[in-house]
């Protein structure tokens, strides 16, 4: 599933996001043109997902509202950076994470199998976005996390990755 780029960007704008720090996968990548077309969003490209968390930390310290956008494989890759900025620095950063193969029944993908257990182990507040109709839940969840001063993760359901 590819969420409609214009609807996604509209959601980010309603959330008050200033910077999207990302390393896209094939389901997130099609958002690029829409992200670049938004006058309210700055796109920051990284080489590895750990960079995304620490750039977002610096942006947050500097008074901006960053959003990390990565795939779940990158979530695993970036575990130490996530651990540090969310728990050592205590920053309420938010990420939208592509949930590879979530929509594929009986997928043997280990990235699919371990995503939710890993997020649960981190104790992170999560929400599933499994259709365009669910985008209001993303906005609501983001606002709730920001209001409570806690980090959060939205899982964007994807098909075959």
């Amino acid at each position: 599933m590819i969420l409609p780029p214009a609807a996604v960007v509209s959601a980010f704008e309603q959330m008050g996001i200033t910077h999207v720090v990302w390393l896209p996968d094939s389901a997130l990548g099609p958002w690029e043109s829409a992200l670049l077309g938004s006058p309210r969003l700055t796109l920051v490209r990284v080489c590895r997902e750990g960079e995304a968390w620490t750039i977002a930390a610096g942006l947050h310290l500097g008074g901006q509202q960053p959003l990390v956008v990565i795939q779940n494989t990158g979530l695993f890759e970036s575990g130490d950076a996530l651990r540090n900025v969310l728990f050592d620095l205590g920053l309420p950063l938010y990420a939208l994470v592509g949930y590879r193969n979530y929509l594929v029944p009986d997928s043997p993908d280990t990235a699919r199998r371990y995503t939710e257990p890993v997020l649960a182990a981190w104790g992170l507040d999560t929400v599933l976005i499994d259709s365009a109709a669910a985008l209001p839940r993303l906005i609501e969840h983001y606002r709730a996390c920001q209001s409570a001063g806690r980090p959060g993760v939205a899982l964007a359901a994807e098909g075959k990755g």
Partner: peptide
């Protein structure tokens, strides 16, 4: 404490902010 190797990225976030 830091995320190992990531001080330049935290600083980059500050520079962009």
């Amino acid at each position: 404490p830091s995320a190992m190797g990531h001080a330049p990225m935290l600083a980059l976030g500050l520079a962009l902010a």
